[in-house]
Amino acid sequence: MTRHHPDQAMLLDYASGAASEAESLLVATHLTYCPRCRSEVDELECLGGTLLDSIEPSLPAPSSCDEVLDRLGREPRPTSRPVPPQVLPQFQGLPRPIQRLLAASDRVPAWRRVMAGLDVLDLPARPPEGAGSMVRLMRLQPGVAVPQHTHRGEEFTLVLAGGFSDDTGHYQVGDIASCDGSISHRPAADLGEPCVSLVVTTGPVRLASPIGRLASLFVRV
C-alpha cells in the first residue's frame, strides 16, 4: 500500500486535463499502484462530468450529426480494447504509462552510467516548462546514495522497484517523494534490490558539493 501520494492539486490538474505530459505520467503511474488516488481521480472526473451537464450549451452545425453518422458508416465495427504497448524485454515489468512512452520513442532508450551504482534513462516525455526540467528513470544499486543536492524547482521521485530513504522519509513502490528548494537531500537506495524510480524535475538541480561527472545527471544531452 502506498503511503506517499501526489497532492490534491496535482490530481485535480490530471483530472481536469491541465497537467503537463510529465505530470500526467507521474500521476498515471502512481494511480497504477494506488487505489486510494484512483478513487480520488474518479471523483474529480465525476465532478468534471457534472460540470459538463450544467454548461451553457453551444449549438452544433445543423448537419453535424449527419456528418458524424456518415463518417461512422465508413468505419468498421467499434473496437475499444487498449493494445498493450510493445517494449523491449528489459522494460516489461514497468507500468504501462511508462511503457507507452518508451514504445512511442523513435530512438531506442538506453541506460547511461552517471557514477558507480547510478544509471539514468531519459524519457521522451515533454517535461514541464522551465530550463533544466526533465523526465527520466533513475536506477540506484542497493545501498548506493546520490550525492547531497538541492533543487531550484520541484522534484518528484516515484519508486517503481525497490525503495530508498532520504531525510524526509522512506519510500517504497508507488510512493512519490517531492522536494523543493527548501530541502537538501541525499537519497540512498535500500539494501537488497536496485531502486528504480521515475523522476520528474521542474528546475535545475544544485549540487551541495560540485562533482563534475554528476553534473551530467542534471543536464539534458
Binding site: L31, C34, P95, R96, P97, A125, R126
Partner: peptide
C-alpha cells in the same frame, strides 16, 4: 500527449 492509467496494466494494484 497525456499519460493515462491502463486498467488492464499487469502492474495495477
Amino acid at each position: 500527449r497525456r499519460a493515462e492509467l491502463d486498467p488492464e496494466d499487469p502492474s495495477l494494484v
